[in-house]
Nucleic acid binder design. Structure first.
Lengths: 210, 210
DNA sequence: GAATTAACGTACCAGATAGTTAGTAAGCGC
DNA sequence: GCGCTTACTAACTATCTGGTACGTTAATTC
């Protein structure tokens, strides 16, 4: 694959390694990913991986950091202040739903990292404890909803985030075993609208019950 | 570890291999698991793994089959026919909650199998399409609830199962990244009762919402 | 109690895999 | 246009790892 007459460009080479490595790690897990395979799919050589990243583990950590950075950027673009609380929480949930569906590689990396008990994230100063912008937005919505008398009292934003995340992550992360056992593809486009609405109903019904 | 003077017992040897292999695969993933490591933790030798299972992949498949068999056995013991629908659905959810919490290795194996796109489960004639007894129980509860006029119409049992599963699986499977980022241990015993009730409220509020 | 078979152990191998050694050349400052 | 740094390449190696060849012994059969 390597083209001997390409111009020199450190940033581009680095970016290409991250991009190819992201796919390889997401596809095969940390242990299953092959440094030689990443190299074969690049337009440069394996030596460059070690030149820029030192070793396989550091490459994996930077793949994770890059993936999380992309997510956070999208979350920061969230704007639901102008909506009433019920509509705002529904939009927040649906944004998470859409986002996870369109970033399966990210979900896979998170699953892989959990198999490794988040040891790499915990060691990464960039990632460990990195605040989630969506959580602040969520807290604001819950406050407004409670003040307006439509949401129940004493709801922890992080609990609501957990409920939304679990639903959206499960659809993507456990798609294959779920399909193998129940013969239903959770990502079937024909059921997408229904699943999206179900999530909104679930959260809103819980928050407004009582 | 091998004791030369132990008596011969094919069943016991087989069972011990499955037991040790379950831990190794759950801890390290399929690719990360080491056949030599499994052997080192047994009271017999690596040769026996190949004697009984042929290769690493077949051993992994039988580990999965054994793990699913244990789950199904517990589910078959479910008896909520005598309870009113609201209480029955709450108990079903809480049973899933309790079960997943006390079988983290099973959840890890499922995560690992999803990283591999369920290729092993799909190939296993024992596992592929294996019906879930809990799903029939769930369908019955929903029917009774609808007949009694307390549950909403047109609810798909598999959707409800998905909601319950996602919540219970997420708590265990994504515990580590969640804790690394939000500094909250989802398995903290102090929050266990709260999380358990939250799940029941979530499902009941959705089903009874008007 | 000899023959047979199932259960087990030792020692080893071939290929895979993360990481390295040693060297080349493009571009930049002067 | 010379020297130096940074980007880059090819070829190699030590070690790990799934798997096997071959031999041995306990139990079972007749």
């Amino acid at each position: 694959m390597a083209q001997p007459d390409r111009t020199r460009d450190a940033e581009r080479t680095r970016a290409e390694i991250i991009e190819v490595a992201t796919r390889e790690f997401a596809d095969n897990g940390y242990t299953g990913a092959r440094v030689d395979e990443i190299a074969a799919k690049m337009s440069t050589t394996k030596r460059m991986i070690y030149y820029y990243f030192g070793n396989k583990e550091q490459l994996y950590v930077e793949v994770l950091e890059h993936a999380y950075a992309g997510i956070r950027a999208i979350e920061r673009g969230l704007d639901v202040e102008h909506l009433d609380p019920v509509e705002a929480i529904r939009q927040l949930a649906e944004l998470t739903f859409d986002h996870h569906e369109s970033h399966p590689d990210f979900i896979r990396l998170v699953s892989i990292e959990n198999i490794h008990r988040a040891e790499h994230i915990s060691r990464s100063t960039v990632l460990s404890g990195l605040a989630n912008p969506a959580l602040d937005v969520l807290a604001r919505i819950l406050d407004r909803g409670r003040e307006a008398g439509v949401f129940r009292d004493g709801v922890d934003p992080l609990d609501v985030h957990m409920v939304i995340s679990s639903y959206c992550v499960f659809r993507i992360a456990n798609r294959h075993t779920f399909n193998a056992i129940f013969k239903r593809d959770m990502l079937d486009p024909a059921r997408r609208g229904h699943h999206r609405q179900l999530l909104g109903d679930l959260v809103v019904d819980y928050l407004t019950a009582g």
